[in-house]
Write a protein that binds this DNA or RNA. Structure first.
Length: 424
RNA sequence: GGAGGGGUGCCAGAGUGGCCGAUUGGGGCGGUCUCGAAAACCGUUGUGGUCCGUAAGGGCCACCGUGGGUUCGAAUCCCACCCCCUCCGCCA
């Protein structure tokens, strides 16, 4: 949620931000207009209320029954007038709130203008792509050949874009989750296990609603939405709370499955397990003071990179352009790992500084020490990392000519000592 | 799912139509006393909106689980819903 004050004082900043995101700016004027209307109505309503409160108080104190009755009659008339204005206000306020909720966060100046992810900028590349004296195969060949990846039965159970992991494949996935959680925890993020189904207001708070409801699964009978990322429940952990400055920064990590309808990529990228309706992810999330969000971003990015380094995966860091930038983000760095079999850079993490955008939606504030009042916190989120894609890279980059896959050293403690997954 | 009890400020807990933004106690903060601390005593202690003001600050409005209703006036009465506790049923 953008600050309404921004529309009053610096509407051009809002227009400029929208334009950089290739969005129309007409709604800005609509907000300004509604805001003016609202404040005018509010003033009328409140002065009538003040009058009514005063009169009611006097009626209570009045002893003379005739005078009492006279004033009650007068107030009844004022009440009707008030009702009409209040009704108007009651329609306008939610409408303005809803409109304001459709505005994305303003992109930071550092975000390059671009149409889509093809215009993201490479910030740096770390590690060397593995070399092979044979033709490396994609995971959709390696997995089934090893008997650890079963597409047919996934489709039998749930349809396209689903799969089943078998034996050491399932265990490798579990090992990756544990390894990531344990590593991130060591960096000072406290683990949380959250619900995977949440209320609509929770999905709204992090910004996936109202605009992206099409990409979410939800129960049509109850108010349950399946989380598309742990960012959603983590944001609302402190919804409607006022935190103490001394408690900040608060850093969380959580494993959740993620559920997405992938309506916008229908028919695309269906090969393999790169994009499914259900995938696993370990997420990092930070609540901090506004002046700290810049350094927390650096920290989070480093933490995500560290996972790639420990797994021995070559990766590159990208600066997301405005066309790819998420709704809530002010700026975002993507991490992409190289997958030798499908010959692709796979996006495995997006680290975003959301600033106060989600904090406003979720009403998450803190009390500055010594100061007065409250301020909105800044929030950041980033994956560490997205799972099936890391699994893809591990399988493809560590494959051997005989079709077996060497397990990265750091994962072996979670693999029960298994060093190589061989044909079964 | 059924029966009963309950949701009030940071916490505990009073309040059943006007004197209640809300008694009181605890905690927090500031102060007096003290070499210092404890105790005692005094003071203070919610959030949001809006208007005025350069600001400090001040006025007004709203908020007692949520949403409606009754009333000149609602924490208090009525209706619906949500949540918590106890017991029963069912159940991984």
């Amino acid at each position: 949620m953008l600050d309404i004050q921004l529309f009053r004082d610096h509407p051009d900043l809002v227009r400029e931000g929208l334009a950089r995101r290739h969005q129309g700016t007409e709604a800005v004027d609509q907000v300004i207009e509604m805001d003016l209307l609202r404040r005018g109505l509010l003033q009328q309503v409140e002065s009538l209320r003040a009058e009514k409160n005063q009169a009611s108080k006097e009626i209570g104190q009045s002893k003379d029954p005739d005078q009492r009755q006279e004033r009650i009659t007068a107030m009844r008339a004022l009440g009707d007038q008030l009702d009409a204005l209040e009704k108007e206000l009651a329609e306008l306020e939610p409408a303005l709130g809803a409109l304001l909720g459709t505005f994305p966060n303003l992109p930071d100046e550092r975000v390059p203008v671009g149409a889509d992810d093809s215009e993201n900028q490479v910030v740096k590349t770390v590690g060397d792509k593995p070399e092979f004296d044979f033709e490396p195969r994609p995971h959709w060949d390696i997995g089934p050949a090893l008997g650890i990846l079963d597409f047919e039965r996934g489709v039998k159970l749930s349809g396209t874009r689903f799969y089943v992991l078998n034996g050491p494949g399932a265990r490798l996935q579990r090992a990756l989750i544990s390894f990531m959680l344990d590593t991130i925890t060591k960096h000072g993020y406290e683990e949380r296990y959250t619900p995977f189904m949440v209320k609509e207001e929770v999905v709204y708070a992090s910004g996936q609603l109202p605009k992206f409801g099409d990409n979410l699964y939800h129960d049509h009978e109850e108010d349950f939405w399946w989380v598309p990322t742990a960012e959603v429940p983590l944001t609302s952990l402190h919804k409607d709370e006022i935190l103490e400055e001394g408690d900040l920064p608060i850093s969380y990590t959580a494993y959740t499955p993620c559920f997405r309808r992938e309506k916008f990529s229908a028919g695309r990228e269906v090969r393999g397990i790169k994009r499914g309706h259900q995938f696993d992810k370990v997420e990092m999330y930070v609540f901090c003071k506004p002046e700290d969000s810049e350094s927390q971003f650096e920290r989070m990015l480093e933490n995500a990179e560290r996972i790639c380094q420990l797994l021995g995966l070559p990766y590159r860091v990208m600066n997301q352009c405005t066309g790819d930038l998420g709704f809530a983000a002010s700026y975002t760095a993507d991490i992409e790992v190289w997958a030798a079999g499908c010959q692709e850079w796979l996006e495995v993490s997006s680290v975003s500084n959301v600033r106060d955008f989600q904090a406003r939606r979720a009403a998450i504030r803190y009390r500055p020490e010594g100061g007065k009042g409250t301020r909105f916190v800044h929030t950041l989120n980033g994956s560490a990392l997205g799972l099936p894609r890391v699994l893809i890279a591990v399988l493809e980059n560590n494959q051997q000519e005989d079709g077996s896959v060497v397990i990265p050293e750091v994962l072996r403690p979670w693999m029960g000592g298994v060093e190589v997954i061989g044909p079964r």
